[in-house]
Simulated scan of single mutants.
Amino acid sequence: MISVPLWLTAEHDCSYLEHKLARSAVVHPDFPLDTLLYSRLIEQGFRRSGDQVYRPYCDDCRACVPSRIPVTAFKANRKQRRCLKRNQHTQVVIKTAEYNERHFDLYRRYQIARHEKTTDDAISREDYLHFLGSNWCDTWFVEFLIEGRLAAVAVVDALDHALSAVYTFFDPEFNDYSPGVFAVLWQIEEARRRKLEFVYLGFWIEDCRKMRYKNQYQPLQGLIADQWQNIHFQQTHEE
């Protein structure tokens, strides 16, 4: 068993829950990582942001639950089946994780439209690659093309037993196609095709709207008390 050195960050305001402090256990930046080792760490609840691998390590909060979809058991609900039908002609192209000006332009427009960024906010090429890319992980930039136009890009890590959904950004003009949902559904089907076990979705946070959506993909497993177990939720008539 490899011993992985960790260090704790200082406490800071939580990005997801108001009036909460957060900190993380981070793999030491000098420790050499590769896709195989990260495949083991993600099973233990770790997550990648750029080259940094971390896990929440908050003193009095366990709201961040690592989540994954067992792909052979997944069943699309009615809304997801409608999304698949709308995207039946969407073209998907897997590309290597290299800088692409079209991707970067889409990323900037997405941040302005969906995350209250302004044109005055400096979103640099370096920040973009530092957030999404990695020097050691097998990462894809997956293009979704609608009528020949770039509608979305999903950043996906290919692990030894799973795919990991890192981030998806899309053109707001294609909102009616639900590109974020379709990107997850495509990853589930691609994992099945490659005979992989899971799609990792990052942290599910019940009390955070932008992180709660993950329980729409069922069955969803969460790492709770160091055990992977199903996360259940009450479906509505809209599902």
Rank of each mutant, 00 (worst) to 15 (best):
M1R: 09
I2K: 12
I2G: 00
S3A: 11
V4Y: 07
A10W: 04
C14R: 03
H19M: 10
R23Q: 15
D30C: 14
D30T: 15
S39M: 01
L41M: 09
D51W: 07
Y54R: 09
C58L: 12
A73T: 09
F74T: 03
R78A: 13
K79G: 14
K85Y: 14
R86S: 11
N87R: 05
Y99T: 02
E101G: 04
H103W: 12
F104E: 04
D105C: 02
L106D: 09
R108M: 07
R109Q: 14
I112A: 10
R114H: 13
H115T: 13
K117P: 06
K117I: 03
T119V: 15
T119G: 15
D120S: 15
R125D: 00
E126I: 06
D127V: 10
L129Y: 07
F131I: 07
N135A: 13
N135W: 08
W136C: 07
E143N: 10
R149K: 14
A151P: 04
V153G: 02
D160W: 05
L163S: 00
P179G: 11
F182D: 03
R192G: 04
R193A: 15
K195W: 08
E197A: 11
V199S: 10
W204V: 00
W204Q: 05
W204P: 06
K210A: 06
Y217D: 06
A225V: 08
W228A: 09
E239T: 09
